[in-house]
Nucleic acid binder design. Structure first.
Lengths: 341, 341
DNA sequence: GTGAGGGATGTTAACGCTCACAGTCTCCTC
DNA sequence: GAGGAGACTGTGAGCGTTAACATCCCTCAC
């Protein structure tokens, strides 16, 4: 039906060849920059291509070369700043390397979902896959997968046998907590991310580690879910606790909620309580007060994951075990101050 | 090389056929749910597929069917909340309909960039394309493109001959401005988006329209670029102007910057100045004060654009001219109040 | 019992490209 | 001027699938 409605079907290599008076193979050579084509012939072919409006069919090409020049990306909720930035970095790096990017965005991450997504991409013939797997369940799902396609995980579990690129969450949390301890705070409270998330775990570990190293009490964790609302609720609780003078919040969005709850309760920041976030979203510089936070270079994560993946593809290895940890950067702004005695 | 390192190549239909003792065509029929296959045969084929770990090759399939079941998406800076949410909605809707999504994220939008991206996707053999074209330049680039692949624009120019899905920007701005006028403000100031953006233009038009309808003075526009920083700078200027009592800011991020500047200058919101934003990002409810804003249903935009695109694909029409406008929703929070006399 | 009808299956030919190989032509060397 | 080395171009096969058609076999009506 569609072939009826369209007047003529789009031209193929043979059509170009006929117009240029050469064989289809010569057209192929021109298209692929093969050196052994006479300049005059090349010109004639290019003219024919232009005249017919010919566009090569990458599907046919992929069938014979067995390379689709497409990379698959599996991610979770690309509406969030972190995943969105990472995927953006991935896409840019891939395109610069001449690859297409096919994206699957999961609403919920579970073993079955990740498995299906990976199968889906494998059927499509992607040359490699990047999985943004920030949750423990997702990271585990990678372990028992068919190993016949190159793959790299972002923010995944370093214990598996898959290459992983991630930001050093523990170090980031350490920087945040050390900063607060250094300002003279007796201890530091923590509003965490959801328990299944590796990033949340890493941040807890870094925070706990510093407190332990200084022999400080480790307060009860206030659990959040990354959303501003959950931060707000945690903030309401913290606002009522006289002993709280410093809070390390696991991401900037929740930190915003905490700041809001503090403002409503009349708790001054950083006057009475210091607050540190995580991510350095573009907004955090303009929170009230501007947020001291830990910057993650998502662009670097994306670029590096593509780098590793392409190396695997070119080496013809299906699975290797490269590790790359991107260091975080601490940004001091106005939400932290020395403890008031 | 890669074929050497991998032990055996992955099985194809013929391999499955041999194991199941049928022809490859019967395997194809089983895979495509053709009715005329004996139940017992189907079982045998499925067993063979399972045993060999066979996965069908969608590339070969696309070559013969001339349908890749892949949709292309061209977008601009998917790090921003709006584009990210739209692309997310598109991706979800596409996958539900059984389509893959191949994404091209442009760093800068210009005619050449859009053109290249579209060509790139066309070569890849996508069945249709969604262009998130919020800028005038991008929208114009769509006009002179080869019309041999179904296409729909999101937030594009309604004047072209391409289908468009968008949120009613003018109406959203009208709601915001009417709200402020209704609170007794003599006039409303405006911090705009970058001039090339259609959304920025629509919001200006809506704002200006309401002021004109009420016979109010139209103040000079303070230009922004969507970033919190540009909002902050505009806010610094506004804070020094005694006559300002109401500001309509073209997006929530800039509104955050305005709020910050006001807070620093000691300008009370909504006590002395009322502020309205646009987008309703998840954070805006927790700004200080919580922001009155205009919600855009990006998910609906994404879903609808896929709906229109699939209808075009199935109808075999390359270009049609459907229009769809998604209504905005006004959210009153705490950043606006009656004017103080 | 026979032929029609249709369900179940097989056979063959594309789809549009690249790869491997086989040519042809030109130019240079001895 | 014969031989060989490149440079350039053409021919044929095949990638893994689906579409079209052919074939076989069973059932049922007369």
């Amino acid at each position: 039906m569609s072939s009826i409605s369209r007047g003529r079907r789009s031209p193929v290599m043979a059509d170009v060849a006929k117009v240029a008076g050469v064989s289809h193979q010569t057209v192929s050579r021109v298209l692929n920059d093969h050196p052994n084509v006479r300049a005059e012939t090349r010109t004639r072919v290019l003219a024919a291509i232009d005249q017919l409006g010919y566009r090569r069919n990458l599907v046919a090409r992929a069938l014979v070369t067995r390379h689709s020049r497409t990379l698959g990306v599996v991610s979770f909720d690309t509406t969030l700043y972190g995943p969105a930035s990472t995927v953006y970095g991935i896409e840019q790096a891939a395109r610069e390397a001449g690859y297409f990017v096919s994206i699957v965005s999961l609403r919920t991450i579970d073993r079955a979902g990740v498995h299906d997504a990976l199968d889906y991409l494998a059927e499509q013939g992607v040359d490699g896959i990047v999985v943004v797997a920030p949750q423990r369940s997702a990271a585990r799902a990678l372990a028992d997968l068919p190993a016949d396609v190159p793959m790299v995980a972002v923010e995944g579990d370093h214990a598996g046998d898959v290459s992983v690129v991630s930001v050093d969450q523990v170090e980031g949390a350490r920087l945040a907590t050390e900063h607060l301890i250094g300002l003279g705070h007796e201890t530091v409270w923590h509003v965490s991310g959801p328990s299944d998330w590796l990033e949340a775990e890493g941040r807890i570990a870094g925070w706990r580690g510093v407190l332990a190293a200084h022999g400080r009490a480790v307060p009860e964790i206030l659990p959040g879910d990354w959303s501003p609302r959950s931060g707000y609720q945690a903030g309401q609780r913290l606002a009522q606790m006289e002993e709280v003078t410093a809070v390390f919040v696991a991401n900037d969005q929740m930190a915003l909620g905490v700041l809001r709850a503090f403002a409503e309760a009349g708790v001054e920041v950083p006057g009475r309580v210091s607050v540190v976030g995580f991510d350095d979203v573009p907004e955090s510089e303009f929170f009230s007060p501007p947020l001291t936070t830990v910057r993650q270079d998502f662009g670097a994560v994306g670029r590096n994951s593509i780098g590793i993946l392409l190396r695997q593809i070119e080496a013809g290895q299906d699975r290797s075990r490269e590790r790359l940890v991107v260091p975080p950067l601490f940004k001091v702004r106005a939400s932290t101050a020395p403890v008031r005695r």
